[in-house]
Amino acid sequence: MTDLQKSWVLHLGIIALLFVLQFILPAYHHGSLARVMVLTCYAMGYNILFGYTGLLSLGHALFFAAGMYGLSLSIAHLDWNAGPALLAGLAAGFAMALVIGMLLLRTAGVAFMIVTLMFAQAGYLTVLYFGEWTRGDEGFVIQQDLRRIAGYDLSDPTNRYFAALLLMAACIIITLRVVQTGFGRVLVAIRENEERTRMLGYDIQRHKLAAILLSGTMSAAAGAAYGLLFGYAGATFASVQYSIFPLLWVLLGGAGTVLGPFIGTLFMFYLIDLSSELTTAYMLIAGLVLVALTLFAPQGLVGELRRRTMRWLP
């Protein structure tokens, strides 16, 4: 098998495995996994920009929240159906990525981080400011009977799991395609050596903008799906915390690997879940494990796997 075939087999195999798992898993883990899969899409969006292009954003919650509010506000206040509302969420994320992408291209390095952080903070404050519609921190619930697409009730656990898997499969396939094509190779080249890449004839700004658009839209898709599948939108999802999460997930799982975001999100979710069963000081346990991981697997779990044995992992 060529490396290309191996990577398709592995990734499609994991999607198939997750499909089968839903029939075996107990209800609790079934629900958890659906949540992890949606959050994985957020991490995968983040990974396009951070892992592959080498741009560290501290404000991705802006895109996640744009997707979430694009969907939930159009359902709650415009009486839109879930399908068009989902598209509204994607469009909101894309538009946000476009505006911010244009501004961001004028900055580099630390300035990029600070600008993303500030914009996300502005987004968070905007959500609070329009509390009349968004209900701020308290948030609002999306009625169960409004969470339907093509007749499927997405509040139903089986449908929800399936929708989450579908979305994650789409994100995996998109990411795989991106990293296999010239476009993705150029993103990696920009990450590795921007000046050299420019002097090989590539328009750096255009590639970075495209990466931000893809990253922002994917993150927004995750935000919209989260609102739709779990029926709630609140300002927490626009907060700094939600900008830091994808960074952690991606670092843990392996920046610049296709599966890293999934493994990282899954790992962290269960780490917090299990340690909080053991003790109320669960953040301490989680923190220690994270420190150990960054010491012993600095490239993340999947990154370490790639370094040690599976050189071909995309």
Binding site: G182, R185, A189, E192, N193, E195, R196, M199, L200
Partner: peptide
């Protein structure tokens, strides 16, 4: 010298010719 140290030799050149 400005090459992509963490990429294979072939990919270094491929980036120059791919487009």
């Amino acid at each position: 010298t400005s090459v992509y140290g963490r990429l294979p030799v072939t990919e270094n050149v491929a980036l120059a010719v791919r487009w």
